[in-house]
Design a binder for these strands. Structure first.
Lengths: 147, 147
DNA sequence: TTTTATAACTTGACTACTCAAATGATGCTG
DNA sequence: CAGCATCATTTGAGTAGTCAAGTTATAAAA
């Protein structure tokens, strides 16, 4: 009855791994009082600030509604400020967030890397990155069958 | 300021890809009136039924609380039945779920595969699967640093 | 037979989303 | 200036999860 294809096995692996490593990352980031999702959003803001909600939503691949709720939480915690700027709202980091990120960023990047560094060679990591990049870019292409 | 390691780039790719393909999968499964998470749970039940909630929770890597809520929804929709059996609750699929799965399963597996089939060769898929399996298994090992 | 232990499950309060309808902000046209 | 269009953001209702405290079911000791 199990007639799994190779592709479906890969898919399941990816889902389980990202799910699990995401939880581990949440655990790791607890000492900075951040979740993985929040860290991700703050990182994108720090790279591209100032930017609008639409732009940010696209960077982290969530919907407009999703980013709106997330930013409400981050604003309440004092990590970001938003100001109405023409039709859009412009987002930037507060001092508090900058300070936390400065410490959390190198540690989180090291944490993420440790999933691969300890088990794959440099060569293998390059291969994995190349393959996933192709798969990801291809899936984005398919996303807009119209136009 | 961007001092990304290769590992952190891989991590981000994986997160973005799974996130996106998960949404596409939700879209695809709409015609069966299922979500990706529901399909995943129903599949595991169909393979291992009858089984307890604890066992199921472990298969799909969610917490006990998570599986409890999910099963309430699935039961309300008439996809599964639970009966108290000694201390545990035993889960099995209803006719309705069996029928839907019979149709949805091959299509969903094909859908998942299409992310890879169309862009990677057989050889490359094997490589990707091998690398991800190693990474995943390694991360599971790290998960229990105690004992 | 009332405690007491314990394993399995549920639940309250929360994060983090989704979609689609509503609201805000601005500009244009009659 | 009123009314309309349009783009950006918010919000209501829902799914899917987390953690930790609370229940329920069963067995076994006091």
């Amino acid at each position: 009855m199990r007639n799994n294809t190779l592709g479906s096995l890969i898919w399941l692996r990816l889902m389980r791994f990202t799910n699990q490593s995401n939880q581990m990352s949440n655990d790791f980031l607890k000492r900075f009082d951040l979740t993985t999702a929040q860290f991700d959003v703050l990182m994108q803001i720090s790279i591209y600030q100032p930017l609008t909600q639409m732009e940010l939503a696209e960077k982290v691949t969530v919907t407009q509604g999703g980013i709106s709720r997330m930013l409400v939480r981050l604003e309440k915690e004092g990590y970001i400020v938003r100001k109405q700027d023409w039709k859009t709202k412009t987002i930037s980091l507060t001092e508090k967030a900058e300070t936390i990120l400065e410490q959390a960023m190198p540690e989180q990047l090291a944490f993420q890397s440790s999933f691969f560094d300890d088990i794959l060679s440099e060569e293998e990591q390059k291969t994995l990155y190349t393959l996933m990049t192709r798969v990801h870019k291809y899936s984005q292409k398919r996303e807009l069958p119209s136009e």
